[in-house]
Write a protein that binds this DNA or RNA. Structure first.
Length: 489
RNA sequence: GCUCCGUUGGUGUAGUCCGGCCAAUCAUUCUGGCCUUUCGAGCCGGAGACUCGGGUUCGAAUCCCGAACGGAGCACCA
């Protein structure tokens, strides 16, 4: 028996971890990622793919990849495979994959059903003419055609000339947003489709195929950019006509990537005209380009989860990405020496001990258990031009030298002595055994120099840190040259 | 122009629905010191935000109205 009128304070929601809870039921959720195959995935796609993947993982559910290739003019055939590869890199393997180009007959079937219900009509208005009527809330003359007439025209549709007719879905001719009024569901398209050839001439519009598929595939939640806000409303009419339950639509804002204003089409253009080397050019925002630079998919994943699915726009900076990435790779990356813009020095007056000496250095200073790399020293090394200045220099972990004009002399050995001398501690590469190396920077420029011999034991894809230079990923292992891609400091 | 939408430090976020526990969270960034034979990491400290104006209220980042700024859509693309 409750004697006291306990006032239960409403629990403030706990600090949110990860993504916001999804609206609606969390049982057996079905979500999808539905890109247009116009190129490989870029960072903007990750903004859509990751939250879908994260939610499915969080609640347990089904992830569907649906390739939306219903515009033959915007299909880049290689993209079909690239998209799957890029998703895999992100850590997503779809439970089911669909190609909309396989599903035209399904769309036709529903189109006919809509016509029979009187919810769609064949419109042979000239485009500008229709717009004029629509903008004034006036139905076009075809809107009231009989079902029979519409079906007749629908059957003749494939034989009509491109641009002369469309199938429209009835909405509300008085809708306050003109964009919503009686939208197009099918059009005639003569372009050859990479997968279908010229099999069909009647192509569904995105709003139609998307709605039908989202329904048939049992989508419970649909994540999409806020540029689709009007489309969501257009689609709602189709759901009403068919008496289908609508998925939960969630819209997210635009993502602006610092220094990468490039769209897929611009990138493609740049590749074709030689401005960029390929889809993995470090200046591009494609996931494969980012991966090539040594940015971990986990970094992108975490970033996208942090940004979440809110409606306001976000601008992400490289600083943020680099910071997150550094946290992940710092303890994985073994350390090596790379000398950029090298200058050879011969240390005079070296004690005999250093005439033939092998320096063992930890692969990672915080993890000595990982083992060592070896640097053979016989008095002659490369150091960065930038560090060659009159004064005292300590070759890291080795010796202290004095630089005077052209002359470099042995000074002392101990680290304590270097402190007294206030010597600058620098990396170096022994002349004997130095390996040619190039580092491709994020602006596409190349820094040339030498790296230490043990780098040849690395595998392509390894992320390392060149001490005092930055984190890099080994991209190519050639006979006499190692090519790295620069990640960040 | 019309129709929508958004606005928390340099950047990204939490909190806004259900006003007080918010002199506002966390991350990144920048920064002072310590430490370290890397300009990496680590440790300790610091800087930095509720777009503006009204209103409601004992009390507003949170509710209401207006403005400014920003964004999206207005295709026979997706």
């Amino acid at each position: 028996m409750e004697k006291f009128n306990l006032v239960i304070k409403k629990n403030k929601p706990k600090k949110r971890e990860g993504l916001e809870e999804l609206p609606g039921s969390h049982e057996n959720i079905v979500m999808r990622f539905a890109p247009n195959p116009s190129g490989p995935l870029h960072i903007g796609h990750a903004r859509a793919a990751v939250p879908n993947g994260e939610y499915v993982k969080k609640y347990g559910g089904k992830f569907i990849l649906r390739i939306e290739d219903t515009d033959p003019k915007r299909v880049y055939p290689d993209a079909y495979d690239m998209i799957v590869e890029d998703l895999k890199w992100l850590g997503i393997e779809a439970d089911e994959i669909y190609y909309q180009s396989d599903r035209f007959e399904i769309y036709y079937k529903y189109a006919e059903e809509l016509i029979k219900k009187g919810s769609a009509y064949m419109c042979t208005c000239e485009g500008g003419e229709f717009k004029k009527l629509k903008d004034n809330c006036k139905p076009c003359p075809h809107r009231d055609q009989s079902v029979e007439e519409n079906l007749k025209l629908w059957r003749e549709f494939p034989d009509m000339e491109a641009g002369t007719a469309v199938l429209r879905i009835k909405t509300d001719i008085n809708h306050k947003n003109p964009a919503i009024r009686d939208w197009v569901a099918f059009r005639i398209e003569d372009a050859e489709h990479p997968r279908l050839g010229n099999k069909y001439r009647i192509y569904p519009m995105m709003n139609f195929s998307v709605s039908v598929d989202d329904y048939l595939m049992g989508m419970t939640h649909v994540l999409r950019g806020k540029d689709h806000l009007a489309n969501s409303e257009k689609q709602s009419y189709l759901y009403k006509h068919m008496d289908w339950d609508m998925p939960e639509f969630i819209h997210y804002g635009r993502l602006k990537m610092e220094d990468i204003p490039l769209s897929t089409s611009k990138a493609k253009e740049g590749i074709e005209n030689g401005t960029y080397s390929s889809w993995t050019d470090p200046r591009l925002g494609t996931l494969r380009a980012i991966a090539r630079r040594g940015i971990q998919s986990e970094t992108i994943w975490n970033l996208m989860v942090e940004i979440g699915v809110k409606m306001s726009d976000s601008a992400i900076s490289w600083k943020k990405i680099f910071g997150l990435n550094r946290n992940i790779i710092e303890n994985k990356a073994n350390r090596y020496f790379f000398v950029e813009n090298p200058i050879e020095i011969n240390v005079l007056d070296c004690p005999d001990k250093f005439k033939d000496f092998t320096l063992k250095k930890e692969l990672h200073p915080d993890y000595p258990d990982r083992g060592f790399r070896k640097l053979k020293f016989n008095g002659s090394v490369y150091i960065p031009q930038e560090d060659y200045k009159d004064g005292h220099i300590r070759l890291m972990d080795l010796i202290n030298v004095d630089v005077h004009g052209d002359e470099v002399k042995f000074n002392s050995e101990s680290f304590e002595e270097s402190k007294k001398l206030k010597a600058k501690i620098i990396q170096f590469v022994p002349t004997d055994g130095a390996v040619n190396a190039e580092v491709v920077m994020d602006d596409g420029s190349i820094k040339k120099g030498f790296c230490e011999p043990d780098c040849t034991n690395l595998n392509v894809g390894d992320i390392i840190q060149f001490e005092r230079f930055g984190f890099c990923r080994l991209d190519e292992l050639k006979e006499d040259l190692l090519i790295f891609y620069f990640a960040h400091k």
